[in-house]
Amino acid sequence: MMLRFFVWRLASAVPVVAIIAVIAFGLLHLTPGDPARIVLGENATAENLAAVRTAMGLDLPLPVQFGHWLWGILHGDLGVSMISRAPVSRLIGQRIGPTVALALCAMTVTIAVALPLGVLAAWKRGALVDRAVLALSVLGFSVPVFVLGYVLIGTFAVDLRWFAAQGYRSPADGLVPFLRHMTLPAITLASTYVALIARMTRASMVEVLDEDYIRTARAKGLAEPRVLFRHALRNAAVPIITVVGSGFAMMVSGVVITESVFNIPGIGRLVVDSVLSRDYALIQALILLTGVLYVVINLLIDLAYALTDPRIRYQ
């Protein structure tokens, strides 16, 4: 049953990814500017531009260009960057690690902060603690990411020197260097999502705490933390998971800014760089990648739904 659902969801994702690819291809080729200008620099002559464009195949009709690209993809070849001539798969491979590390760390921080805060607020609803928790989380959310980044760097990296001001170290270089470089960016990125998830947790928990089985659990004399986290949180999980999931997807834009501010060589910056320099081959591959990633995350969310809330059944 679960397996059939899984396979069906996976199969239904294929046309989605295909449609994304077509739209992205069209969208990008409609934007003004092209990679030949980057290769030749801002003072290039029209004659040289024409020659480079021809060599890049940008003169060909769009359907033909799309065909070439698709043919490559189907053969497992993502092509080469139109600007640096480096293989796209290598460029993405160089960048994916830092972004995954950043997203996971940020999500860990988010959940570690937001869940307890949300539960606390729901438990003490209406009390000062409740208001304080909400106000604090919203404050984190409403400060622009780059401002928070600057402030954190100024304090903890430049003045106090506890953390690195910029750059990235892979976990393979050791846990301490990795955390020195990753802590501030993870907090910066997490600040945006703490509010969202804390609030969603609170809202869901409040609802669940009124249910009869919670009363029953309490009446049975179970310890309050156990009631809160074991019984209530588990049943309040569905909307929380939705928001965590879409939070992951939304992280891309936060990642772009965070990576810029902390100089982390990740996918977010690659996305913006390649859009701004119109490196078609690279952007198309990146869109395909994020598309697939997104489908996978959502698949996991749907699975989690089915597991946490058995009331939802799939045909």
């Binding site: 739209i23 990008l28 869109i287 997104y294």
Partner: peptide
Amino acid sequence: MRVMDGLMAIPGILLAVALIAI
């Protein structure tokens, strides 16, 4: 939901940058 997936799968900021550039 597939259409929503498609929309979300293209990073918002990329979509915005491309739209604004067009």
